[in-house]
């Protein structure tokens, strides 16, 4: 695989992102390394080619935002909104993630080895997210579809106003949000969990040590008796 290296100390982010938005036929299969990210925002956003990007350090907000097809690895921690609205591809954060990790992501896989902050997987729309550590409060708020796997604990208000997303939690849940309830994990959900654990490097973790949470579907229609929950 051909590898190209960019140094953010020497080359403006605009030029690197512009290069990464180039014609897919010339980018596909290439490996790009970005050195000295130093927490810069918006690194490798809007990628749409089957390219592998490795960020050698910490990234700021929206790393790999709106990703399509690409594989992005961050060898450090990330700021808010990593892989926000991802459509496809694979984003792997080897450190920790700040707030709103994987917000509104539609597809692809986001793996965070460490902890994630508040509102992880907020308004998730179909992507898969695996968090090796714990997630902060209000995670999976209004999550519509997709899967969130949490190997550690979850903070307050997990899955508040959740729609059809699945939440797998191995540790403790401080509290569930409105209309989120524990579900029985059937064979279909177990299969999804096993697959995600395997694809995120946690194949040795016992799937039966997780609990499944999802929507009680009591808020799907406006009703006077639910007024307090709106």
């Amino acid at each position: 695989m051909e590898t190209l290296t960019f140094d953010l100390d020497k080359k403006p982010l605009r030029e690197i992102n512009q290069f990464l938005h180039g014609d897919a036929s010339t980018l596909n299969g290439k490996s790009i390394v970005i050195e000295n990210p130093n927490g810069a925002h918006n690194i490798a956003v809007g990628l749409k080619a089957d390219v592998e990007v490795t960020i050698k350090g910490h990234a700021g907000y929206y790393a790999a935002g709106m990703n399509q097809l690409a594989k992005v690895v961050v060898e450090g921690s990330v700021g808010s909104g990593v892989a926000e609205n991802m459509m496809s591809g694979h984003v792997h954060v080897k450190g920790f993630a700040s707030n709103a990790a994987g917000a509104t992501a539609n597809g692809g896989l986001l793996v965070i080895d460490g902890d994630a902050g508040l509102r992880c997987a907020i308004a998730l729309k179909g992507a898969d997210i695996v968090v090796g550590g714990s997630v902060g409060s209000f995670s999976a708020f209004m999550a519509q579809a997709g899967n969130l796997v949490i190997l550690g604990d979850a903070g307050e208000g997990l899955g508040d106003s959740i729609y059809e997303a699945r939440l797998f939690v191995r540790g403790k849940v401080k509290s569930l949000g409105a209309d989120c309830e524990e579900k029985v994990m059937g064979p279909e959900e177990r299969k999804i969990l096993v697959d995600l654990l395997s694809r995120s490097g946690h194949g040795d973790v016992d799937p039966d040590s997780f609990k499944l949470y999802g929507s009680a579907r009591t808020l799907y229609h406006f009703h006077v008796d639910n007024a307090g929950a709106y």
Binding site: L13, R14, N17, H41, N42, V45, G46, Y62, M66
Partner: peptide, 10 residues
């Protein structure tokens, strides 16, 4: 930062 992201993507 969000506006900068939208500009970068487009």
């Amino acid at each position: 930062i969000k506006i900068a992201e939208l500009r970068e993507i487009t």
